[in-house]
Structure formats: C-alpha cells, structure tokens
Nucleic acid binder design. Structure first.
Lengths: 152, 152
DNA sequence: CTGTGACTTGAAGTGCGCTTTAACTCAAGG
DNA sequence: CCTTGAGTTAAAGCGCACTTCAAGTCACAG
C-alpha cells in the first residue's frame, strides 16, 4: 500500500463509485496520474477533493460551481487546511441561506396552512427568499432557480 | 371572469408554466374539466393543489410522492383547510430532518474542516444522517439516497 | 366571417449527475 | 503462461422535471 490509490481504492475510501470518479475527472474536478499501462493512480490529496465535492453537493452546489471553486485552489502545492477552510467557508453563506429558507418554509407551513390561505396569492410562501423581484408577469415563485429557463 | 380558470390563467396565478401544468395533469397531480372544444378549465381548488405541489418540492419531495399524498385527499368533496393541514404536516418531519442535516453539516464544516480532517475517514461528515448502517464495503456516505442504485 | 392569440396533442429534446454496456487491456497470483 | 479480477474507453442510457416543437383547433373581438 503505497501513497497512490487505484480507482477502486479511492472509490472504497470515498464511497463514490468508480464511474462517478471518472465522470468527475472528465469534468475537471479531480485528476489522476497514469501508470505505464494507462491506469489511474490518485494522490492522497484527491481523497480530500472528493470529500469536498460530496459535501458541496449536500450544500446544493452544482458540479460546475464546485469545479470553479476547486479551480481556485493553488495548483502548485498541495492545498493546506486553510485552503480547504476558505473554500468551505465560501459555501457557508449558501448553507445558511438554505437553512433559513427551509426554516421559513416550516414556520409558514405551520402558520399559513393552518389558516387555510394556502393559495399562494399574498401568502408569505409566495416569495420565500425575497430572491425574485418582478421578472415576468406570473409570480415565478418558489424553488431554486431552474438555471435560466427563458433567454435571460 | 367566472370560477373556472383557463390554463393560462392558472399559470399566471400559480407562477407555474402551462407545460408544467399539463405535465402535472399527466402524472395525476391535478385535474381539469374540459370545454366542448376540449380546452382545460380548472376549478379554483386546483390552485391550492398547485401551491401544495410547489411547496412540497421545496421540501424535497418527488412528484411521485406528492401524487401519492394528493391521492389521500377526499375525492368526493373539496378538501378542507384541515385536509391541507394534515398533508402539510406529513412533510413536517422531512423538513425538520433536512434542516437538521444541513445544520449539522454547517457545524461540521466549522469544526471539521477547520481541523483539517476533511478526509471523510472518521469525520462526522462521513455519515451525516445516521441513516446508513453498513451496506456494502465503502462508506456509501452522504447525499439523499440515489433511489436504489443496486438491486435492492 | 375572419383574424388573432390561446389552446390542443404526441413526440422529441434538455440538463444534471451519473450508470451501463461493449470491447478491450493491465496486473498479479499460481 | 494462463487465468482472473480490476482497469480502460467512447457511447449510449437513465430518471427526473420539465420545455420545445410541429401541426392543428378553439374562442372571441371586430
């Protein structure tokens, strides 16, 4: 057991399927050296990148954004704990926001539905995050934005 | 303006695209009467169903589960505020759970990453929901279950 | 009666995050 | 040397939640 991992080993240690790891590599989220026989060999540091990816997904960040974040890591040296801390902190706001939204939704469910106003007319549920400010005629309400549905 | 809505009206009032409303109908989440010319006419009560659908999605419930929930509404009469309250309450646990998980993740990000242990080895992030109890070799960690990946 | 805009359908397309498949090569043990 | 399990690729497929398209119909104002 040396300090380069095969894809199977990385898969077991990270809990991520080999096919997903290859997929991440194609998207540029992780990288691997190759043996003479073209097999992937992962540095131990990749384990941390994979951990970061899965955690970020839980926060609700897309792989594309995760890639962008990972790209901001220093390419020259192995990222330090502070590097990781900085990246993780950058999700902190989103995490807070999601928690806030869900908590608000819970409170609204208690208050708003109980009162029978579940009509999304002027109910607070209508525009939960204050995120949307009049764009289009309909309320265009609720839900994490569907990634620019109409030409924006 | 009578008390039956066209699909365009329902769309504007609910903030949901007509195509999505037709899609919901195909899945059996909402229903519509038809005019002589085969156009949809929605009873006002459908507005409330659509509201419930969107709110449920925010809680993280799939359309299939939402359909199952809506199926439990009385078919004979227009659902009462109590009916809606009961349904909404049924999501309450999920909402709480999601909030709990995200809050835990936030705390872990503060504590765990700061300490540099972002390795998902024995970190608390490893198994956030206590949901998984040894199934397979890898950690099989994190993330909302991917809907039975292996034959279960 | 005619034009216009809203509506109808089924089928195909989209985006995300993967998984599966097929055909193949590599690595290591006996 | 041979077998076996782990690895390789490109391409296709999948599940979800819709959207878009094409071709046609309806409703209503003028």
């Amino acid at each position: 057991m040396m300090d380069l991992l095969t894809i199977g080993e990385l898969s077991v240690r990270s809990g991520v399927a080999p096919s997903a790891l290859r997929y991440y590599e194609r998207l540029g989220l992780i990288r691997a050296d190759r043996t003479g026989g073209n097999q992937r060999r992962y540095a131990r540091a990749e384990l941390r990148r994979v951990a970061f990816i899965r955690i970020s997904q839980q926060v609700g960040v897309s792989l594309d954004e995760i890639r962008a974040a990972l790209d901001s890591l220093p390419g020259s040296r192995t990222p330090s704990p502070q590097d990781w801390e900085r990246l993780s902190a950058s999700w902190r706001g989103r995490l807070d926001e999601r928690i806030r939204l869900l908590t608000k939704l819970r409170d609204d469910l208690d208050g708003c539905i109980g009162c029978g106003c579940l009509s999304l007319q002027r109910c607070t549920l209508n525009n939960p995050g204050d995120t949307l400010a009049g764009e289009g005629p309909g309320a265009r309400l609720l839900l994490p934005r569907p990634a620019s549905p109409d030409g924006e």
